Computed example of a mutant assay.
Amino acid sequence: MTTLSPENSLSARRSASFILGLHPLVRTEAWKFLTGYYSWQSSRDERLTVDSTRRKNYKVLCEMYEKIQPLLENLHQNFIETRNNIVYDIQRLYDKDPLGNVLIDKKRLEKILLLSYVCNTQAEYQQGFHEMVMLFQLMVEHDHETFWLFQFFLQKTEHSCVISIGVGKNLDMLNNLINFLDPLFAEHLKGKGAGAVQSLFPWFCLCFQRAFKSFDDVWRLWEVLLTGKPCRNFQVLVAYSMLQMVREQVLQESMNGDDILLACNNLIDLDADELISAACMVYAELMQNDVPQPLKDFFL
């Protein structure tokens, strides 16, 4: 029997999560490895130590925030505006399941979002983060886990969902990808569809959260993004695949920018496995061509 080296074993485990997805019973623990919360090589005792440290560090951050909050309120207008935006966004969240059971604790969610805004100077806060962090809160039990998983998720995905960092790059590369793989569609978008692709920024800001029929589908796609397989910046191939779903309608009806955006916004209740498979086919097609250097640098 062939024995895998530690490096190949880790690669196999990550590949398995990409190909097969994660069973709901192991998702919570597996995400701690995928995000980097735990090291793949760590022992059980080491993981207990890491979790204890992350819990303590979160408590320290909370205490620091409580001390500086009055200063932030008095000296930083942006803080007050952001806090109000967070409260408003959370109030609009539907926090109960069909049976009326409360799914999330909105006050805890508000605290985590405010702390993330104060501590993460790269990402800060943008509309949509409340929906993303809600999914982390649904996945894990403790606030420190929710906070750190979200931070590590942003880092692992190269802040691709952050407007000031990754979203613009994603949109530019999506345009480049359409130009390269589908010149006919690209020509239509340059004419009647002017601005349609740039208007798709919510796809990236929310990591496609609103396109799926269930939270499990959202987690399934996010798990793929965390593996880095089959390539970096897989989210752009996902967006391209979604655009291909409306391509024939757009061309046949000669849709303009607003109609294209409406058709794209109607892409809901999608199946994650089907979309991931379609995006993988796009990647395979891309690899069969002489890829321009900007695309090669972005995906490889």
Rank of each mutant, 00 (worst) to 15 (best):
T2D: 05
L4K: 11
S9F: 13
S9P: 07
R13W: 11
S17A: 05
L20R: 12
L20G: 09
H23D: 14
L25V: 15
R27C: 07
T28H: 06
T28W: 06
T28L: 06
T35I: 03
S43M: 04
D51P: 03
T53L: 11
K59V: 11
L61M: 07
M64P: 01
Y65P: 10
K67A: 14
K67V: 15
K67I: 15
L72Y: 08
L72Q: 05
E73S: 12
L75M: 09
I80N: 14
R83I: 01
N84E: 15
N84V: 01
I90L: 03
Q91Y: 11
Y94L: 02
L99G: 05
N101L: 10
K107D: 14
E110W: 02
E110R: 08
K111W: 00
K111P: 10
L115N: 05
T121R: 11
F136L: 03
V140A: 04
F147M: 05
F153Y: 14
K156E: 09
T157I: 15
H159S: 01
S160N: 12
M173I: 06
I178T: 12
I178M: 14
I178W: 07
F180N: 14
P183V: 02
A186W: 01
A186P: 04
L189D: 02
K190A: 15
G193V: 05
G193I: 11
A194E: 15
G195V: 03
C205E: 14
C207E: 01
A211R: 13
S214G: 04
S214T: 12
D216R: 07
V218W: 10
V218N: 10
W219Y: 15
R220G: 02
V224S: 14
V224R: 08
L226S: 00
L226R: 03
T227L: 07
T227I: 03
C231N: 07
N233T: 13
V236K: 05
M242N: 11
L243F: 15
M245K: 13
R247S: 00
G257P: 02
G257N: 12
D258N: 03
D259C: 11
L261D: 04
A263I: 07
A263G: 08
C264S: 13
L270V: 08
D271Y: 07
I276G: 06
A279S: 09
C280N: 12
C280F: 01
D290W: 04
P292W: 07
P292E: 01
D297F: 00
F299W: 12
F299L: 01
L300A: 15
